[in-house]
Structure formats: structure tokens, C-alpha cells
Simulated scan of single mutants.
Amino acid sequence: MTTIRAHSAPRAGTFLERCAARLGLTIALVLLRLPFRYTVRLVRIARRVGRRPLTPGHAEELVAAVRYVGRRRPVRIACMESSLGTVLAAALLRRNLTWCLGARFVPPPTEYHAWAEIPGHGPVGEYTAGGWHHHTAMCI
């Protein structure tokens, strides 16, 4: 049995967080079309704007807001796009998150992955239970 509720997601975050998520995700989609060195430079500049760290609960809400906004886009929004959008949305809210690129080791396969991280707290909005380990190759 299929219902509308199964295909729709509840709104995540406050109105201000959803606006920052929409703008951050749009900027992320533009930045990922540029050469990667420019993307890295602009993320480092954006991280200087946000001086205060996010609390883990607030960061989870921001990740959920970016994923909610991303579901309404007609383009592919995967880990790279959503994590970069989350970091940029946090910078728009004058907060600080770290953008991490690396690998995620799950029980059988290994896959490349990108995620947002609070310094000293680990990945935000990621499933880390059940043997999933995130190994960082580069933090920006």
C-alpha cells in the first residue's frame, strides 16, 4: 500500500535554516561545477565567516534542512552536494562546520564519501552505528 505520507518528508529546521539551506545548496551546486581548487578556496573563505561552532543538535537540524531542500531539486543531490551545502548554510548562519572528504568503510564494501563534521564531535547527520567508520582524507 502506497500513501502520500511515505513519499513526502516532514519539514526540517526553522524557516531561517531552510532559507540558508536553499541558498547554501544552490551555491554548492555552482561551486562543484568549477575546478576543485576554486571550490576549496571559497569554502575556506566561507569557514572564516562562521566563527562560532554549532551544537550537535543544531547541526543535525541543518543537515536535515539541506536534505529536505535537496529532495525538491530536479538534479542529483548526493553526499558531496549535501555536505557542501550544509557547510555553506552554516557559514550563512555565521556558524562553523568542517567539510570532510574521505572514505566510509561499511561491513562489506568501501565507498568514497563526503560529510560535514563538527570539530571534535565527528560526522553530523551520518549513520555511524553498526560498523560504519568514516576515514578522512581531507578536511576543509
Rank of each mutant, 00 (worst) to 15 (best):
A89K: 00
E60G: 09
I27R: 14
L29P: 01
L34A: 13
A21L: 00
V106S: 15
R33S: 07
E81C: 04
L23F: 13
P53W: 03
R76M: 05
R72I: 03
E60L: 15
V43A: 14
W115C: 01
V40M: 11
R22Q: 05
I45C: 10
R44T: 11
R47S: 13
C19Y: 01
A114V: 05
L54M: 15
V75L: 12
T39E: 02
R104H: 01
A89F: 02
W115H: 01
A20P: 04
I45S: 09
E61L: 13
A103R: 14
R48T: 08
V40D: 09
A28W: 00
S83N: 04
A20F: 04
A90I: 08
W115E: 01
E60V: 13
L54C: 11
I118F: 01
P56N: 03
L31D: 00
V43D: 08
G70L: 08
P107I: 02
L42N: 02
R22L: 15
L54F: 05
E60W: 05
S83T: 07
R22N: 02
R48K: 12
L23Q: 09
V106K: 10
V43Y: 09
F105Y: 14
T26I: 11
L93T: 01
R73F: 11
I77E: 02
V43F: 08
C79Y: 07
R37E: 12
L54S: 06
L93G: 04
R94W: 13
C79I: 04
A91L: 10
L62C: 07
R104K: 09
L54T: 08
C100H: 07
P74C: 04
A91P: 02
A65Q: 02
T110N: 02
R94S: 13
W115L: 06
A46G: 05
R44P: 01
L42A: 13
G50F: 09
R104E: 12
R95S: 07
L101M: 14
P56F: 04
V40F: 01
R72C: 06
P109D: 10
A46Y: 07
I118Q: 02
F105H: 14
E111L: 14
R72N: 11
F105D: 11
R41Y: 08
V30P: 01
A21P: 00
T98A: 14
V106N: 08
S82W: 06
L84W: 11
R37H: 10
R18D: 00
L29S: 08
L54P: 06
Y68L: 09
F105A: 11
Y68T: 04
A46I: 08
V43Q: 10
A89I: 04
L62K: 03
L54Q: 10
W115F: 07
L32C: 12
A46T: 09
Y68G: 06
P74L: 10
L25T: 08
V69N: 00
R52D: 14
Y68N: 00
C19P: 01
E81N: 05
S82Y: 05
A20L: 07
W115V: 08
A103T: 12
V30D: 02
T110M: 13
L84D: 09
L92T: 06
L62I: 09
L92S: 05
Y112G: 15
A28E: 01
R47M: 12
A64E: 15
A78D: 15
I27W: 13
A103Y: 14
I45W: 15
R104M: 15
F36P: 02
A64T: 02
A64K: 12
P107M: 03
L32T: 13
V43M: 07
G102Y: 11
W99L: 13
E60R: 15
Y38P: 00
L101C: 12
L34N: 03
S83W: 06
